[in-house]
Design a protein around this nucleic acid. Structure first.
Length: 497
RNA sequence: GGUCCCAUCGUCUAGUGGCCUAGGACGCUGGCCUCUCACGCCGGUAACGCGAGUUCGAAACUCGCUGGGACCA
């Protein structure tokens, strides 16, 4: 039987990082097993519908690389894939379950339930439904039904014995049936609860591996009992360990970013996020931790998912992001950087290939920008860092303290002289051979023949071009800047120092 | 409070009774490279929660404790 798994989120508008990891593991189980991954929208518990939530969910998942074989947006043979469109189905199966004696109607009012709980609390008893309606006679039921009393449908739990369930990660788990509550399967308004809809859908959609986060383990025996009550074949259950925040608690907004959209906007690459998240609770057989999406699709192994919770610490995410940035093609890097540069008002798009430098009004091509961005490729950790890293390319007048031009213990006069001499030499370099390699050779020769310290020439030179203590190398910057602008910046520096 | 789960460096983890004076990655750190930063390379730092047992031998198996977490209230 081929693998069929599903990712079944509630559409809240944003994708939580924990959900991303659940989606990833689930998707990778499907792909590595040559199976299908289905998207199902679980919206029966929605307080209010969030506009466009499903679309943005699908979009952000596609951004990370997850595409579904079936779902509300692509269809499939097991639809509909949105639970609110399946209420007739749940209704039908609720009746079946009632007939099979796996559930019963409960007419207790919310007020009575509240009183009951209050009493249980006072007597320090576990607060559970007291099963008053569990053994109503057929006559009583039809009478109350006819008089129009509202009712919910509750699952009929065994009164004693053990419920032994098996999880793909944790192994055997044993529950004492007497602790199980006759919980609600269908609410009085006819809407099923998560527990019920989930089981019915998983069965009807022929899901082979029911995957979800650890936090659902408490309802695991109830699910298993439902399958048994229906007489359905049991799928395999896989509960992923949870992800905790640094303090050890549930991963929530209070401790920093937890939404995938936030990471995307900050300039994290999907590959990095995926690589990082997949390692939260899973580890490859060999120790190669740099794994492309494609490699994961092939080599993911469900058996290597660990059992203990992982803490969400983004240090390593930054490392992965830097790594993936360094390995991008220059053109691709520019494409992802462009929105940030434009947004920061450094440049403006004027046509397909033309960009105006806002400060100077000069128009440059994609080529030029590619050169600029490439210089910071090995330095930035996030795409958004590019703005602060390359801004010196886009200003008219560099602002820096003149003393910065002075290298180590040299004097201002020496700095000026060295810059001045270098200026003359560079002036002689023809524009068409103005590139980093030529500059390196020319300047190298000059330093050698003049018997100077490398730093005493290169430091003032580089600072004159960048205005910074730390920056890419002098030759590369000069090369990208071009002859004219390089000489102009040097001239200004000479006057200042 | 009840039920369940989990427990190796700061973090992610490898580890299925002898290959473990515990391996990898990130972080931190020393060095090399170098005009600076970054990259890269070489090195260092640092962990089996505690206590019993099983065994010739335990990070690994069992039990208890402790700690953390999830769920229900």
């Amino acid at each position: 039987m081929s693998v069929r798994v599903r990712f079944a989120p509630s559409p809240t508008g944003f994708l939580h990082i924990g959900s991303l990891r659940t989606a990833l593991f689930t998707y990778l189980i499907a792909k590595s097993g040559g199976g299908k991954c289905i998207l199902r929208i679980e919206d029966t518990d929605q307080e209010r519908e969030v506009e466009g939530a499903v679309e943005s969910l699908i979009e952000i998942l596609r951004w990370v690389g997850i595409v579904f074989d079936e779902g509300p947006h692509v269809g499939g043979n097991y639809g509909p894939y949105t639970q609110t469109e399946r209420v007739d189905i749940y209704d039908k199966y609720a009746r079946i379950l009632l007939e099979k004696d796996g559930a019963y109607r409960c007419f207790c009012t919310p007020e009575r339930l509240k009183e009951m709980r209050e009493e249980q609390r006072i007597n320090k008893l576990p607060t559970r439904y007291d099963r008053r309606c569990r053994n109503l006679t057929d006559a009583e039921i039809s009478e109350r039904l006819e008089s129009g009393e509202a009712f919910v449908i509750r699952q009929k739990m065994p009164l004693d014995g053990d419920v032994v369930v098996y999880d793909g990660i944790q192994g055997e788990i044993r529950f004492d049936a007497s602790h199980l509550d006759d919980h609600v399967l269908v609410k009085s308004n006819g809407i099923p609860t998560y527990q019920f809809a989930n089981v019915v859908d998983d069965h009807l959609m022929e899901i082979t591996h029911v995957t979800r986060a650890d936090e659902w383990i408490p309802s695991f025996p109830k699910n298993v009992l439902l399958y048994r009550a229906f007489g359905w074949d049991m799928p395999e259950f896989v509960h992923y360990p949870v992800i905790l925040n640094k303090g050890g608690g549930k991963l929530s907004k209070r401790h920093g970013d937890v939404m995938v959209e936030e990471f995307r906007d900050k300039g994290y690459l999907p590959d990095a996020l995926v690589n990082f998240c997949v390692l939260l609770g899973w580890h490859p057989k060999d120790d190669n931790e740099i794994l492309s999406f494609h490699e994961l699709e092939r080599n993911f192994d469900m058996k290597s998912i660990g059992a203990s919770a992982a803490i969400f610490d983004t240090d390593k995410l930054d490392y992965f992001n830097g790594y993936y940035i360094r390995h991008m093609l220059p053109n691709d890097l520019l494409s992802v950087c462009l929105p940030y540069l434009i947004n920061a008002d450094l440049i403006k798009a004027v046509n397909d290939d033309g960009f105006e430098i806002v400060k100077s009004g000069k128009v440059v091509g994609r080529n030029y920008l590619e050169g600029v961005v490439a210089l910071e490729q090995e330095r930035i950790k996030k795409i958004s860092d590019v703005v602060g890293a390359v801004d010196f390319f886009f200003v008219d007048e560099l602002e820096y303290a003149p003393e910065l031009l002075i290298w180590k213990k040299m004097t201002a006069g020496e700095a000026r002289t060295n810059l001045d001499n270098l200026l003359k030499i560079l002036d002689a370099v023809p524009v068409d051979s103005w590139n980093a390699a030529v500059l390196e050779e020319v300047i190298g020769n000059h330093i050698k023949s003049a018997g100077l310290n490398v730093g005493s020439v290169l430091w003032p030179f580089r600072v004159s071009l960048t205005g910074r203590k730390a920056s890419p190398g002098a030759f590369e910057v000069a090369s990208v800047l071009g002859k004219e602008e390089t000489l102009r910046r040097m001239g200004k520096a000479i006057k200042q120092v």
